[in-house]
């Protein structure tokens, strides 16, 4: 199998509003893709289609060999293979950090508690917050919470990681600690799709940059080329506004 995600002529509407128009995209295993574009361009929606937090109306999406459709079992299968990190962390406030990590492996994968906790502790070690394992999300800083959220997604041992603006809700001084974790993850060979406004991150890790505007993929390029000179006028405009 040479693509782990493939989208063919995908269209998505919110009522009458055409959010995504004829999206064609394939992602190879271990590929790192960064989605850029002005707000409202459909980047987040595109990422959320992949684990079906949003439904598409036309076209075909195949993730890890499974076609996404109404079949609930398929959807749950794909969701357990695809990790996701949200802008607002979305940790479970009533569970300890450790329980946040082990809940899904125990309930979804039916893993035993001891082995799930062992892996959870290793992951917390990796994101450098093992000492907070027994605290609750409300007791951690934003940056720490987002690192927990990454570890929580990884604890399901996903094949793909989706990031939906993971640093946008953070105080500036906490952005780096989260990006460092993401860079490490990229170096280990995880397949990643990131919606982000961190251009430094995009330059450092992306294999491919996808620039979107008004629900369409306007430009696809390697980061070096995109940042040195976008082909499209809208891409040039976007870069001139943010840099």
């Amino acid at each position: 199998m040479d693509s782990i995600i493939s989208m063919n002529n995908v269209n998505k509407y919110y009522g009458d509003f055409h959010v995504l128009k004829d999206i064609n995209l394939t992602v190879k295993p271990k590929e790192k893709i960064v989605l850029l574009g002005p707000s409202g361009s459909g980047k987040s929606t595109l990422v959320r289609l992949i684990n079906r937090l949003e439904e598409h109306q036309h076209g075909q999406i195949i993730v890890d060999g499974i076609t996404l459709n109404e079949n609930v079992k398929n959807i749950e299968k794909i969701r357990s293979e695809v990790g996701m990190v949200f802008q607002s962390f979305n940790l479970f406030p009533h569970l300890s950090i450790l329980e946040n990590l082990t809940l899904a492996p125990i309930k979804v994968r039916k893993e035993n508690k001891a082995s799930a906790e062992k892996r959870a502790m290793e992951l917390l070690e990796r994101v450098k917050i093992a000492d907070q394992a027994l605290k609750y999300p409300g007791q951690l800083s934003g940056g720490q919470q987002q690192r927990v959220a990454i570890a929580r997604a990884l604890c399901m041992q996903p094949k793909i990681m989706l990031f939906d603006e993971p640093t946008s809700a953070l105080d500036p001084e906490m952005v780096k600690e989260v990006l460092d974790v993401m860079v490490d993850l990229a170096k280990e060979g995880m397949t990643m799709m990131c919606v982000t406004h961190e251009m430094g991150f995009a330059k450092e890790v992306a294999d491919r940059v996808i620039f979107m505007d008004a629900g369409q993929i306007v430009e696809e390029d390697n980061p070096h080329q995109f940042f040195s000179g976008p082909k499209s006028e809208r891409g040039q405009q976007f870069l001139s506004q943010i840099l």
């Binding site: 749950e76 990790g83 979305n90 479970f92 309930k107």
Partner: peptide, 24 residues
């Protein structure tokens, strides 16, 4: 976001209600 996070982890709808939503 709580529902979305639970679903993104692969929890089924009943599991999401029982372990995430109702306790809160």
């Amino acid at each position: 976001g709580q529902t979305e996070a639970a679903k993104a982890l692969g929890l089924s709808s009943p599991q999401t209600q029982i372990f995430i939503i109702l306790p809160q």
